[in-house]
Simulated assay, not measured.
Amino acid sequence: MSDRSRRTFDKAFKLMAVELHKSGKSSNEIGRELGIAGDMVRRWSREFASTGASSFTGNGKPVLTVEQREIAELKKELKEAQIERDILKKAVSIFSKSDNKYSGS
């Protein structure tokens, strides 16, 4: 196990790195100057390009639009319903076995 703790960077630092990248500097050059990996600069730039001002909310939890939150909630409900359906299917197959072991008669 590594003794290094995970480094965190505030939004201002990430935005500065993205702005330097947008100005034409290479991500590896920016990484060397800031003491971070070049791939982090590229990842932050991609995130900023896709989500703009709502980028870098912290702790890996992106700010979702109302529609995105609704979709996530519906996906969660669908998964729960599918799990319940699978459990009921198994129960029906157990109780409907032809050997009348579970028929109660």
Rank of each mutant, 00 (worst) to 15 (best):
M1H: 12
M1G: 14
S2F: 15
R6N: 09
R6Y: 10
R6W: 04
R7S: 07
T8M: 09
F9D: 00
K14H: 03
L15H: 05
L15C: 07
L15D: 08
M16T: 04
V18H: 01
V18F: 13
E19W: 00
E19I: 02
L20Q: 08
L20T: 01
S23Q: 10
G24V: 07
G24N: 13
S26H: 02
S26N: 06
S26F: 00
S26A: 04
S26C: 02
S27G: 14
E29A: 15
I30W: 01
G31L: 04
G31P: 09
R32K: 13
L34V: 06
G35T: 05
G35N: 07
I36E: 00
A37P: 00
D39R: 12
D39T: 11
M40V: 00
V41P: 01
R43N: 15
R46W: 04
E47N: 11
A49G: 11
S50P: 00
T51E: 10
A53L: 06
F56R: 02
T57H: 12
G58M: 05
N59A: 15
N59S: 15
G60S: 10
K61F: 08
K61Q: 13
P62K: 14
V63H: 09
V63E: 08
L64Q: 14
T65N: 15
V66H: 11
E67G: 02
Q68V: 09
Q68E: 15
R69H: 10
E70W: 03
E70P: 00
A72V: 07
E73S: 13
L74D: 08
K76M: 06
K76C: 07
E77H: 04
L78P: 02
E80R: 11
A81P: 02
Q82I: 07
Q82M: 07
Q82H: 12
I83Q: 10
I83Y: 09
E84V: 14
D86T: 08
I87L: 10
L88W: 12
L88G: 01
K90G: 14
A91M: 12
A91V: 13
A91D: 13
V92N: 12
V92S: 11
S93A: 11
F95N: 09
F95Q: 04
S96K: 10
S98F: 03
N100M: 07
K101A: 05
Y102Q: 08
S103I: 02
S103H: 06
S105T: 03
S105W: 04
